Amino acid sequence: MKKKRVNPRRKPATYADICTAKKQAQEKAIELTWSIFFTVLRDKEGYEIEDLQRVWKGCEDLSDSIARGYCTVADLRQILKEEAGANLK
């Protein structure tokens, strides 16, 4: 019976490696999303720097409310659906 050969260049990933990669992927996705969002506001909607700063501050405040448990993302989505008819998927 042949013995299975192991690739000598293969390095098993540790749990810490996986957590680090996950965190990096999340940060990259957030950075990409914010870049797209603010570029659209600037280029398509004509927002000036003061407007962008105001939006950023509002987003930070709402994020803080979520982090403190005052509301959830599900709550926000439900409010948008009920009050504005916006069904985000």
Rank of each mutant, 00 (worst) to 15 (best):
L80H: 06
K28H: 11
L88A: 07
L41M: 14
E31P: 00
G85P: 01
E27F: 06
K81W: 14
L80W: 05
A29Q: 14
E31N: 15
T39C: 09
L80M: 08
S35F: 11
G69Q: 02
A29K: 13
G58A: 03
L62M: 09
Y15C: 08
A86R: 02
R10E: 03
I30L: 13
C59F: 09
L76W: 00
E27D: 14
G85H: 02
F37H: 15
L62H: 02
L32D: 14
K11Q: 13
R77F: 04
K89T: 05
K23Q: 14
A29E: 14
Y70C: 08
K44D: 13
P12Y: 03
Y47H: 07
C19S: 07
Y47V: 00
T33R: 15
L52D: 08
R10W: 11
D61N: 07
K3P: 01
R5E: 12
L62A: 06
S63W: 14
R77Y: 04
K22Q: 12
Y15L: 11
D61Y: 06
E48W: 00
K44A: 12
K89F: 04
S65C: 09
Q26I: 15
E48L: 02
E82H: 13
K3L: 04
P8S: 15
L62R: 08
K4F: 07
K2L: 01
A13V: 07
A86D: 01
A13S: 09
I49F: 06
N87V: 08
Q78A: 10
A21H: 10
S65V: 00
K4I: 11
R10M: 03
R54K: 00
K11P: 02
D75M: 11
V40C: 09
E82G: 11
A25S: 13
K89I: 06
T33F: 15
K2G: 00
L80D: 07
T20V: 13
W34S: 12
I36H: 15
Q24C: 00
W34M: 15
M1W: 01
V6S: 14
G46Y: 07
A74P: 06
I49P: 02
E27P: 00
F38Y: 14
I79N: 03
A25W: 10
E83R: 15
T72D: 07
A16Y: 10
A16R: 14
D17P: 02
E60S: 04
D75A: 12
K44R: 12
M1V: 05
E45S: 13
V55W: 02
E31H: 13
K22G: 01
R42V: 00
L76D: 01
D75S: 11
E31A: 15
I49L: 07
E31V: 05
G85N: 03
Q53F: 05
Q26W: 12
E60G: 04
Q53A: 08
L88K: 05
P12S: 04
D51T: 04
R42S: 05
N7Y: 01
C19R: 08
R5A: 11
R5Y: 02
K81R: 15
A84D: 03
A13I: 06
R77P: 01
I79A: 09
A67G: 01
T39A: 14
E27I: 10
D61W: 05
L62G: 01
Q53H: 07
Q78H: 10
I66N: 13
S63C: 14
I30V: 12
N87A: 08
P8N: 15
Q78M: 10
N7I: 00
R5G: 01
K2P: 05
L76S: 01
L76V: 00
